[in-house]
Design a protein around this nucleic acid. Structure first.
Length: 673
DNA sequence: CACGTATATTTATAT
DNA sequence: AATATACGTG
């Protein structure tokens, strides 16, 4: 662990009033937070269970936990909370679900569940032209983040369209409640609501949280800001750390101006700036600074480091995206050989998850070990969604979404007609589909034959649910998967047996990850973690990566620019530096270039020693090759610190012919000189 | 009700 | 290109 500089030390030890740390990229803000946690526990004598640190991504939370573990013994750290905002919210809701009017084992709807529900509601109430589901979803989410209630949304609606969306919002909120389900926004919103309506409960939580630390504060949205405010109360014992230049979540409601707002809410706020960078070479920092200088600034800061100039930034133009991926793979191999580095010293960053696909192929081909972090691929696999739906049904039978997903998977000969009748009956009685199956009244609406099929399913589910509570839940779930004959179902529905086996192994990965999380909870004697929270966390995508990366292996890291925030790597590749990709087309259309620029800034500042940016001259889009334009951000780089390759300049000629390792190495040599 | 074929639609970003 | 949805047949 590095020694702290005076500014950092001040930030760690300052506890007299609220503290805002303005920390530029690589200025050691994670060190400040982790050391401050240690300082609070070891020097100030605060019990670990009274200290809470929140971040925004699972990855960051995991990393922070690990680094605290290096400073504080396991015993001392017992009860310490380091989690994401959403996870903290989940815990609060779980403990206070009764007050909030939710039954235990509520489901969490992810993005896709929400979308499906909104689509359904839209069709039900406004059958015409439901082509704006994304807009509706987005609008509702924004309202929730801004703490706008359904009534407010309806009364403030300025045009007809907004009025319609507001009405759907109302139906949406009611339906979710009826399903005993919450969405991601609720994970923040419900605690806020709870605390503002219930001072006794708030008092309890304020008492538990004696010191609060918030990382990446520029990413907080209105409801998160309020949650922080409520939790710290008048005691206002907190430290927040942020950097407005790294605000990249405005699209999900983040308000970087919350940084400035803090001064008004807490007049005694102390502000400490960290401007010395301990990560990158001067050239990389200069590039980052010149790019971000094109954005307006609230807080002026000047990042510097004393690691020397370092290598030029290389911008490599390739013919198409395939050559680009190939090139990156080849460069990693040659560079690694020459510099005797490790695979994990390299990171490949991109704007969209789909860009990982080609890279994956090429890396495999060259037998380069890699790890893709984040991405939705695992959870969007149909087999994973199926089993997740079963799990959700176990903890919450009223989850109609889950019910509909699995009622006929595998085939139970229950079709749309039966379900429609069931649905009608259920909505007229205001009960869930599952509950409706077991009602006597249903027999007048449905033929005996179909009724029996439905009930065979519900009875079977009830049996499994009971087993989960009586015996070991993991065993019960494993039994369930066997009972389903899910493997056979996959074989029937996959192109080949080997594909089916792969999909089946995904199912077991899911179950194992559940098992693991229950075990971990046991060891940490996390009071209330049971099968229900474990499944909830699964929806939040927590804990799955943990086990995949467990071997702490030496792999090239692949991730989106968003996911890379807070991390650092000696050698960084930023790929797809093209207009419409970075900046993304939608951002151009929405005139939101500044956030894309910050995203570029985040990417650049991940690099410690060398940065390579690549772009493809042509790229496949909707199945057709499209000519691309180099990203405008490339032109914002300081020209004297950039080497351009593949733009028809002289070095590029050599690269074109240079296919062998030696040739590449000799060119590199010259570049280094 | 299941299955096969034709047509439409799509690609931010994370919890 | 790949995947979701719609429609028609057995």
């Amino acid at each position: 662990m590095r020694r702290l500089n005076p500014r950092q030390e001040e930030a760690v030890k300052y506890i007299d009033s609220p503290l805002l740390v303005l920390a530029g990229a690589g200025s050691g803000k994670t060190s400040v937070i982790t050391q401050k946690i240690a300082y609070l526990i070891k020097t100030c004598g605060l019990k670990a269970k009274h200290v809470v640190a929140v971040t925004f991504t699972n990855k960051a939370a995991r990393e922070m936990k690990e680094r605290v573990g290096q400073l504080v013994s396991g015993k001392e750290a017992r009860g310490l909370t380091v989690s994401t905002f959403h996870n903290l919210g989940l815990n609060i809701i779980r403990r206070e679900h009764k007050t909030l009017g939710y039954k235990p084992g509520f489901s969490i709807f992810d993005d896709q569940d929400v979308k499906a529900l909104i689509k359904e509601l839209g069709e039900k109430y406004y059958s015409e032209g439901m082509d704006k589901i994304d807009l509706i979803q987005h609008t509702i989410s924004n309202w929730k983040n801004d703490l706008i209630t359904t009534d407010q949304a309806i009364s403030h609606a300025k045009d007809e369209e907004t009025e319609v969306i507001a009405t759907i919002y109302q139906h949406y909120v009611r339906t979710l409640k009826a399903y005993n389900a919450v969405d991601f926004d609720d994970l923040i919103l419900l605690p806020v609501k709870l605390f503002s309506e219930n001072p006794t409960v708030l008092d309890k939580w304020q008492n538990k949280i004696r010191y609060l630390l918030v990382d990446e504060y520029q990413d907080t949205n209105a409801s998160q800001y309020l949650l922080v405010k409520q939790l710290v109360g008048t005691r206002a014992a907190f430290t927040v750390v942020g950097d407005d230049d790294q605000s990249i979540y405005a699209w999900r409601g983040a308000r970087p101006e919350n940084l400035a707002l803090l001064k008004d809410d807490y007049p005694t706020l102390n502000v400490i700036k960290l401007e010395q960078n301990y990560r990158s070479t001067s050239r990389i920092l200069k590039a980052a600074n010149t790019v971000i200088a094109n954005n307006p600034h609230v807080f002026e800061k000047r990042l510097w480091s004393d690691f020397g100039m370092g290598d030029e930034i290389r911008v490599v133009r390739c013919r198409n995206e395939e050559v680009e991926a190939e090139r990156v793979a080849a460069e990693i191999i040659t560079h690694k050989l020459k510099h005797e580095t490790k695979f994990k010293d390299y990171a490949i960053l991109y704007r969209g998850n789909h860009q990982a696909k080609l890279l994956e192929l090429k890396l495999q081909h060259h037998q380069i070990p890699y790890f893709i972090s984040g991405g939705t691929s695992f959870f969007s696999r149909s087999e994973v969604k199926d089993i997740m739906a079963y799990l959700r049904l176990i903890i919450n039978p009223d989850d109609d979404n889950a019910f509909l997903r699995v009622i006929n998977v595998p085939r139970r000969e229950i079709g749309p007609t039966t379900l429609e009748k069931l649905g009608n009956y259920a909505s007229q009685r205001h009960i869930s589909l599952f509950a409706a199956c077991n009602e006597f009244g249903l027999s007048t609406h449905l033929d005996e034959r179909f009724l029996e099929k439905l009930q065979r399913f519900t009875h079977w589910m009830q049996k499994i649910t009971q087993q989960c509570h009586q015996e070991d839940p993991v065993t019960a779930i494993k039994d369930m998967v066997h009972d389903l004959d899910y493997q056979n179902w996959l074989r029937q529905n996959s192109s080949s047996d080997s594909v089916a086996d792969k999909r089946m192994s995904n199912v077991w990965t899911l179950v194992e990850s559940l098992e693991k999380s229950l075990k971990v909870a046991d060891e940490e004697d996390d009071v209330e973690t049971d099968i229900k929270t474990a499944i909830g966390k699964l929806v939040l995508r927590d804990m799955l990566e943990r086990q995949e990366q467990e071997d702490d292996s030496d792999r090239v890291q692949l991730m989106t620019l968003h996911a890379s925030k807070g991390l650092e790597y000696p050698y960084v590749f930023m790929i797809g530096m093209e207009e419409d990709l970075l900046p993304h087309r939608s951002s151009i259309e929405e005139n939101n270039i500044e956030e894309e620029r910050r995203l570029t800034y985040v990417g650049i500042t991940r690099a410690r020693k060398a940065l390579t940016m690549t772009l493809a001259g042509q790229r496949k889009q909707f199945g057709e090759q499209i000519e691309t334009t180099p990203s405008r951000f490339l032109e914002e780089l300081p020209i004297e610190d950039v080497i351009r390759i593949g733009f028809g300049e002289e070095v590029s000629q050599e690269i074109k012919q240079a296919t062998g390792k030696d040739a590449l190495a000799s060119i590199r040599n010259r570049i280094n000189k």
